[in-house]
Amino acid sequence: MMATENRQSFLEHLDVLRAAIVKIALVTIGFGMVAFFFKEQLFSVVLAPKSDGFITYRLFDRIAAWSGGLSEPFSVRLINTGLAQQFIIHMKTALCAGVLCASPYILYQLFRFVSPALYENERRYVTRMVGGGYVMFGLGVLISYFLIFPLTFRFLGTYQVSGEVDNLITLDSYISMLVMMCLAMGLVFEIPMLSWLFAKLGFLSADFMRRYRKHAIVIILVVTAIITPTSDIFTLSLVALPMWVLYEVSILIVKRTVTHK
């Protein structure tokens, strides 16, 4: 009798999970379809960093003019090499936009599914972890979109070994690099939240992080080399620097967490 009740309870949980997954899929597809039909608006955002009129470039141009320097205008034209490539990229980009727009609802459904199994204090920690992690991930994506990717693209897109060699950058290469760098930086910005969680669980201390700071820097460089889509020093430096800063910030967070534990 007990086994039957447990089995029924398990099946009921599966039904709840299935319903949550269906809702998540429908909302994600819905946002993706909206993004697909608003093609001009979608790609005006996606392709903005390739133009020298992008806000980041204009800001650096003003800084250069204020300091007495001159910045050269640049222009990079993207090409397409596959018959169906543009349509496929359009679909993939719209789906990514759908996932991004639906992400708050996805987190809500997942939390709603697991929350009945949590105690009140556990729900509080999970809420902080999920909310803080979401904010930090979004911050990482924004920093990548507005700072790291534009500077990387401008450097690599205009770099030439000779004036006789033109850069022909494919749309697929551009989109892939943009998505990978935004995703990588979003994950990198989870370092403080993970440090806070490990400190709460008693697995991490500020003294430990200070003691192994040199080792952490080596690990940061190795991870940066893995997650970045290119292997040039410029891009590696742009990604490694925020990771190191986040590590130092995490030391302060862990110290404060352990003190007020």
Rank of each mutant, 00 (worst) to 15 (best):
T4H: 08
E5M: 13
N6C: 09
N6R: 15
E12V: 14
E12R: 15
E12D: 14
L14G: 12
D15M: 11
V16Y: 13
L17H: 08
A20L: 02
V22L: 14
V22S: 12
K23Q: 08
I24D: 07
A25H: 06
I29G: 13
I29N: 13
F31P: 06
F36S: 14
F38T: 09
Q41L: 08
L42M: 15
V45G: 04
P49Y: 09
P49V: 11
T56I: 10
D61Y: 03
A65R: 13
A65C: 00
A65P: 04
W66H: 04
W66V: 04
W66D: 08
G68N: 06
G68M: 10
G69F: 09
P73F: 02
S75D: 01
V76F: 14
V76E: 10
N80H: 10
T81L: 15
T81N: 12
F87I: 04
I89L: 11
I89T: 01
K92S: 03
T93P: 03
C96P: 02
A97G: 03
A97N: 05
G98P: 00
L100M: 09
S103R: 03
S103T: 01
P104R: 13
Q109G: 01
F111Q: 02
F111Y: 07
V114F: 11
S115E: 01
P116Q: 08
A117E: 06
L118K: 03
Y119N: 09
N121I: 03
R124N: 13
R124M: 15
R124P: 00
T127G: 07
T127H: 08
R128P: 00
R128V: 12
G132Q: 00
G133W: 04
G138W: 00
L139Y: 01
V141M: 07
L142Q: 02
I143T: 11
S144D: 06
P150T: 04
F155Q: 01
L156R: 07
Y159T: 06
S162C: 11
E164A: 05
V165E: 10
D166R: 10
N167Q: 07
T170A: 15
T170M: 15
L178E: 02
M180P: 02
M180R: 03
C182N: 02
A184G: 12
A184R: 07
M185S: 05
L187E: 03
M193L: 11
S195G: 11
S195Y: 04
F198H: 06
K200S: 14
F208G: 11
F208Q: 13
R210Q: 05
R210M: 07
R213W: 15
H215C: 01
I220N: 04
A225P: 01
I227W: 06
T228E: 00
P229F: 06
D232S: 05
T235F: 04
S237Y: 05
L241T: 07
L241Q: 01
W244I: 14
V245H: 06
Y247M: 02
E248D: 15
K255S: 08
K255P: 07
K255M: 00
T257A: 09
V258C: 14
V258H: 12
